Simulated scan of single mutants.
Amino acid sequence: MSSPSELTRESGAKAFDGHQYVYNHESSTVGCKMKFGVYVPAKAEKERVPLLIFLSGLTCTEQNFITKSGVQRLASEYGFIVANPDTSPRGCKIEGDSDNWAFGEGAGYYVDATESKWSKNYRMFSYVNDEFYGLLIKNFNVDPNRIGIFGHSMGGHGALVSFFKRPAQYKSVSAFAPICNMSTSEWGVDAYKKFFGQDENLWKQYDATELVASYHGPKPHAPILIDQGSDDNFLAKHLLPERLINACEKASFPIYFREQAGYDHSYYFIMTFLEDHFKYHKKEFENSK
């Protein structure tokens, strides 16, 4: 497969019946070179297939998901293109963007910052849901009517926020151990003060718990699937799933929350339940025809 337009291929390897690629491109949205992984099954060489976008968590690059999750076997079996972007702009040389593992490089939180120091480059919400989304449809054999989004931790937050803010773009959403209430979590408060200043109304615009209360888009056919490990070290201070569950109940929004006994926050947890998420998205795609 030759490199699609606007993209530079960095690597490619056959895996199962398809290929795992890594590409880079110059992003006009975040003002730097961005990398992403994309698995293309053999089926996509002949026809348009569903797309799943996976958003990774804090400290991750485009490599973590494609090297640790075992996603290639499932993407091949289900016939899905699976694409995963980096988690932030890199190399922008903004003072303070690499001082803390929980903020800045590797920690863009999938928001569009409004504070002037960050607003030029830290526009990951627009990158994922406009530039990256469009790039995938343009350059790969994607069925635009069957696109889902999911993610882990910070990326689970990003997936939920993307779904609630852009309901016309996604047929399905799921998450592993998402940060459910960013505007009150310890990670979120620290990051959002920098990205948005003191206006907490701006913080709430990128908070799944807040967004579900005002969501007016189409509801999924089956409750949104969220998996959470019971032994996750970040559960109490940072993830706060009970707040999203309560907000969904008040809004009569369907959610299926599964606490998985003994599992932590790692990719061992993700790989264990990843196929359940593929099954979930597959059913949503079939129901949306």
Rank of each mutant, 00 (worst) to 15 (best):
I226S: 08
S288L: 05
K93I: 06
A251Y: 01
D264A: 10
S5D: 14
G96C: 08
V128A: 05
E26P: 01
I179P: 00
P178K: 15
G104F: 02
K43Q: 15
V22K: 04
M154I: 09
G104H: 01
E45N: 08
D99C: 01
K193Q: 12
E77I: 06
N64C: 06
K14Q: 11
E115V: 08
H152Y: 04
H25P: 00
K138P: 07
I179M: 02
G106C: 07
H281W: 00
T87P: 06
A208K: 08
Y256E: 13
Y280N: 08
L160G: 00
L235C: 01
E10G: 08
E10Q: 10
Y23K: 03
T272K: 15
F65Y: 15
H157C: 00
D143L: 07
H221K: 14
N64D: 13
P241D: 09
V38Q: 03
F16K: 03
P254W: 04
L58P: 00
N129P: 05
S27D: 06
A15L: 11
E77F: 10
S119Y: 08
W203E: 08
C32I: 02
I53E: 00
G31N: 13
S116Q: 13
S88K: 05
Y110E: 00
E26M: 12
G31V: 09
K219F: 09
Y109L: 02
G104C: 07
R123Q: 11
S266R: 04
N233Q: 15
L52A: 08
